[in-house]
Amino acid sequence: MMKQIFRNNQAVFGAGIILLLILVAVFAPKIAKYDPAFINIQSALLGPSLEHPLGTDSLGRDLFSRMIYASRIALLIGFIAMGLALGVGVIFGSLAGYFGGKTDSIIMRFADIMLCFPRFFLILAVIAVVGPNIFNVMVIIGLTGWMGMARLIRAEILSLKTRDYVSASRALGASHFFIITKHLIPNGIGPVLVSFVFGVAGAILTEAALSFLGLGVQPPNPSWGNILMEGKAVLGVGWWVIIFPGLAILITVLAFNLLGEGLRDALNPRVER
């Protein structure tokens, strides 16, 4: 499978950008020239220059430095939120798929109910109660994002558990735990990982949207979304405050989507002839 992924240019391209982003996030203090929170009204809304490669915002903060630091938050929320969703989804989904019957109907009914809510409404409602901050946003995005993965792994397991190798394993005396962890999850995890990668992209978009609405990462902490929110106020004056954070989101999400698409192709090679 690795070979197929590497043969897939778009996946390699996506993975490359993601790697670059991770490096940027890790070494943010080394890359950023300015303190992202340093306010200097005198240099407010300066266009891109050598001094400030992406210009400054309405409080005179260096946009480049703020965007570098914002990448940390985007990636952190993307990975941790979806990691949480992955864990919950895989556990629920494999229990439901393997045991079937009552277990299955209770878990999947719960997932169905959760899926009825427009996700953004649900997230907004919880934030209204617990208040907006990075940690809450992370947990809420995770806990509202597991249902798709649970469905995927359940569907995989439903088909895998009738495979002959599972029957053979049972004939050899294997326990449920052994069958689930050794045969079913390793073979069924592929589509879930694809969905995880797309999910990270989605979580980053959601965080950006929340922050843009003022309900996510709170200023002065920089996030691509809240930089854009501030940019909206200077619409028509400082184009750079709008263009660059948007591009950052676009490129990041694009990278994850490319990787996800590539992974999916590698998992389902087109049937020849």
């Binding site: 992209a201 949207a209 709008i242 694009l254 989507n257």
Partner: peptide, 23 residues
């Protein structure tokens, strides 16, 4: 398709607004 998928809607909204509305 990939661009349309990855671009946040509020950003596209802002761009359209500033171009067709403001500019």
């Amino acid at each position: 398709v990939f661009m349309g998928f990855a671009a946040p809607s509020f950003w596209i909204g802002l761009l359209l607004m500033s171009f067709f509305g403001v500019r």
